[in-house]
Amino acid sequence: MSRTVLATLQVLVAVIAVALWWVITQTSILGDPARIQFFFSTPADVFWQIVAWFRSGEIWRHLWITLIEAALAFVIGAVAAMIAGFWLARRPKLAAVFDPYVKAANALPRVVLAPIFTLWFGLGIWSKVALGFTLVFFIVFFNVYQGVKEVNRTVLQNARMLGMSERQLLRHVYLPSALSWVFSSLHVSIGFAVVGAVVGEYLGSSAGLGYLIAQAEGMFDIAGVFAGMFVLSAFVLLIDWGVTMVERKLLVWQPDNNH
């Protein structure tokens, strides 16, 4: 399939979906349009709601707050996880002791932590950062742990035979190997940072995309809920695209990133 055909088909899917949405909410095929509009809003209402947000500039503040929360959750979570992952991977006995607790902590659905974090850190950004942290931490942690454990044996022995000290091995062998695992999970972990921020906002806050959606929902403003969802998914797509760009720069040495 050529690129233009593919792109045309992809656009066509959106056009058909919106057209269906429009037909259902404007005609009486499925019943009273006014009733259906209450549950599904209409494409035009949602569109004008988004335009209104951007025109008034109100949306930027919310986007910015969500972005900051997600970024902080990702950076703090990733750094903490890398330190913990390295530390435990190099100390198998300690890792064995902590193993059941790490698994138990990871098994806990993180949403239940949100009320506690709100109590501890208040309604501001830090309770959302904490929620995002608990999501990001485990993904990065397991990847670093695996990366250090599964360093290629020959590469390691070769580096030793070349005369590397433990510190040099850490810098030139263990760290790059672990980082390649962290990068391969970058899409997932950054996605989770955003999830943590938005869910935290939804459950209790005064700003952010999650707050916007929760507010609209509270007033039965379905157009607002849908508009918030569309902005959110565009926001995540944009971040994901940025991650792909960074990845291409940093992982040139990997065979499958050779586009």
Binding site: T154, V155, N158, H172, W253
Partner: peptide, 13 residues
């Protein structure tokens, strides 16, 4: 100096 059978170069360099 040791020359290995398998690939021993650091792939990230």
């Amino acid at each position: 100096g040791y020359l290995f059978q398998a690939d021993a170069l650091m792939p990230w360099k």
